[in-house]
Write a protein that binds this DNA or RNA. Sequence first.
DNA 1: TGAATAGTGTCTATAAGACAATATCCC
DNA 2: GGGATATTGTCTTATAGACACTATTCA
Lengths: 271, 271
Amino acid sequence: MGEDATVSRRPNTPKSSTKPRLSTVTSEDEKLLATYDPSKFERPSVTVDVAILSVVGERLITLLHRRDSAPFRGRFALPGGFLQMDESLEAAARRVLLAKAGLRDVYLEQLYTFGAVSRDPRMRILTVAYFALVDATRITVGHDASLPERTLAEIVVPWAGETGGAVEIQIEGARTPEALAFDHADILGTAVKRLRGKLDYTPIGFQLLPEVFTLASLQRVHETILGRPLNKDSFRRKMLASGQLEATGELQQGVDHRPAELYRFTRRSAV
Amino acid sequence: MGEDATVSRRPNTPKSSTKPRLSTVTSEDEKLLATYDPSKFERPSVTVDVAILSVVGERLITLLHRRDSAPFRGRFALPGGFLQMDESLEAAARRVLLAKAGLRDVYLEQLYTFGAVSRDPRMRILTVAYFALVDATRITVGHDASLPERTLAEIVVPWAGETGGAVEIQIEGARTPEALAFDHADILGTAVKRLRGKLDYTPIGFQLLPEVFTLASLQRVHETILGRPLNKDSFRRKMLASGQLEATGELQQGVDHRPAELYRFTRRSAV
DNA sequence: TGAATAGTGTCTATAAGACAATATCCC
DNA sequence: GGGATATTGTCTTATAGACACTATTCA
């Protein structure tokens, strides 16, 4: 940030006289801080929200909480929390993942920062949104005393390709789409758009599958995310040519047809 | 943000009793706010920084300011400023562009939010970084009483492709790279990485050229950003096939060889 | 044996790279 | 005319899609 030195762009903010005292501040700096005090500025609250995405069957799903307080009481919302002063943004996102969904060691990437002035009716709150990819076998919504209530919801994407925009959320059994709290439908839409874009040139789809998987299941994951069918032959060729798949030599079990070979991602560490 | 309702995750924050009063808050909400007050949380400062990129000759350049106060006094930094409580993030970025570089109506896109705990030695400051693309003819660094001092600096990218990482900054005439303030070399590196990625599938390169341009100059822009030579034939074919170029019928003037035809971008509005 | 999906091989269409030939301007 | 770059056309190679055929499992 190129914070200005001379500044008093905000005459309506109270002129606080408390200067920050940090061990890294030298005595020369101390003098300068007298004329430049960032704490003069009003500050927004900052939260971190995580769009946890997974593919179950042929559906793109996400994990939500029902809000039990205002604003948007009763609406579903992404898991999130306030950024603490001693943690990085990513650390906050990982804390949220663990505390609210019981997930650790998942693929996590910063998505976008949402900062519309009135996105929260109470006060100015920015949210730094992340998205996480989790294979279906790791998401649980059963009762767990150490975790808050969770709900899995289907993401229905009402636009093609990478058009972008809000998505619709379909709760199991419900007939109409569920309106989400805040701008969370936009956040999920942004996550889907980003994921679709990445799928073409990165092996990110593997993050949504268990350790070993068949090429057909990988293709179904891609198709579910992209929302369109893919050519089987070229999908197969491209994946094998990418050098990122490793044949395990094992075969699929328990299917009523010829079993497919199981593959493994060669760099599971790519988080 | 899925802010928790019951909360008191931060026992060390002062329990403020000032509840926000907003016209959109209903009386039922008022009651709930008694048990849930986001202002209880300590808040970071938030700035917006803008990486202004341009291509001049065969060089990728950016616009910097020299800091005249601590921290990083004397170092160059990106233009930036504190987010005001009544403006959106993008509005803040556009305000910075106008106030610090005299630029308006330029391509602007949110890049990434940088939030390492100690990125500013004084206090916790997040910055939401944006990048702007400006054609070379619009960047001025001459003296202008309404603008702060500015410097154009060359961006030297020490990595290939989309590897990512900090870039080096070369100030005109200097022999060694210039160390930037804060994490601004990382921000610029992130901007270059993003730009390289977008160049393959979006017409974003046009934003760096004047209204009309030749195919050769467009190719030079692409090559400068990508840091590698491109095949002339296929570049030409791909651009013309994209349907985003429109021949003006005019020819280049004042060259000592056969003049090239001038083209125009068909959707300059794509900001 | 038949249903179902896996996996291989071949052909074609399309896009990318290489290269040659011609065009047009200024000096 | 000579130098320099633009523009067009053709050939070759790589990649993607289409399709036919064989393979393997279970019911």
